[in-house]
Design a protein around this nucleic acid. Structure first.
Lengths: 193, 193
DNA sequence: CGCGACGTTGATTTGCCTCAACGATTGTGG
DNA sequence: CCACAATCGTTGAGGCAAATCAACGTCGCG
């Protein structure tokens, strides 16, 4: 059962008792997602926290020129969602889509509220999860403001070695905020050193 | 008393009872900070969550060339801290400094843990605070990846009108990730329209 | 008063984009 | 299972956005 992955994941933050485990097990929804299938589509409200059990997903926005900009990837044991839309229940401007065939677990808002109210532990766990995502995001923003394309690419390779092998470079370029053509130039220049 | 500002602030998230208020009052530290005074300096551990009561502060990193890059401003009723360093207790690579003479309130880690353990309400409040900071940061990253300097500047003016009047343009430029000279060009170009 | 921070302008350079083209690989429908 | 289409990675020519460097006037502050 895929829910066990999630239980183990939570367990690594704070051990869960059997009531908490059973509550999770009965409420979490499991889905199989095909490559290129949407988990969230622009103009919809983000109704779930999504936990990736296997496979790989991305969250991105589409600008006025139709270009995609990757905000985040999520592979095994990572969370992906538009937190803003989820909490405000307003239309999202973001898309979440599978890059590989994936298995995901989803928690909807009533479930999350239920967990918070009945098991204060989950409030702590999700606070820490969000904190960690915040730290990651802040580092990334810092990279973006202060480094050029080559430095950002090298930092990406170092920080996400498991992703750099799996992802097409077009996706990496979109994440770094450069064009695939220029990433190709950067890669060549690095290889020559 | 400045602590009242913080209590009112929390109250707007979730009403506090008198025990919670008294606990805050007795543990929160108030400080007056001069212009250009450091609240956190690179290579120190970030030991406090800082709440700005009045004035204005910035958090920034210094790159290899000695250039500063503003990650965040915080003025009245906003939080500023290096969450990563605070929780890991590792040296910060960031500086937090007052741009204006400021009054701040600080919560250290033992206090925060005490609050979390004795008043679960604070766990919820800080989760929501971090969530909101996360959303703000994500929007900013998106801006940075997908927009040019003029678009980012206009978005900044719209989103932080109270800051754009108070801050020197050098600080704004550092926040936007461009040089002050180029911001000047951008501003001129906007004014001519 | 004098010094340092600030905002602006201009000349030049550079990092990255755009567009076009090409093989190589992958995926897919017949 | 093959044939064709779509995606991918790369290269190159040319263009534009933004950086760099230098200079100058203004302002606030010690």
């Amino acid at each position: 059962m895929s829910v066990d992955n999630l239980i183990t994941y939570f367990h690594n933050y704070i051990p869960l008792n059997s009531r908490e485990k059973e509550d999770l097990r009965s409420r979490v929804i499991e889905k199989k997602i095909k490559r290129r299938q949407f988990i969230l589509q622009e103009h919809d409200v983000c109704r779930h926290y999504t936990f990736v059990v296997s496979g790989c997903t991305k969250m991105y926005s589409v600008d006025n020129n139709g270009a995609e900009h990757n905000i985040q990837f999520a592979s095994e044991n990572e969370w992906i969602m538009d937190i803003g839309s989820f909490h405000s229940e307003r239309e999202s401007r973001l898309n979440i889509e599978a890059i590989e065939p994936s298995v995901i677990l989803q928690i909807d808002k009533p479930t999350l509220i239920h967990l918070y109210q009945n098991h204060p532990k989950f409030c702590r766990i999700f606070r820490v999860i969000i904190e960690n995502k915040f730290i990651e995001l802040q580092n990334r923003l810092l990279q973006n403001i202060s480094s050029n394309a080559e430095e950002r690419y090298l930092a990406f390779l170092e920080q996400y070695p498991h992703l750099s092998n799996r992802l097409p470079n077009t996706q990496v370029a979109s994440y770094l905020g450069i064009t695939p053509e220029f990433l190709s130039v950067v890669r060549k220049s690095i290889a020559q050193k």
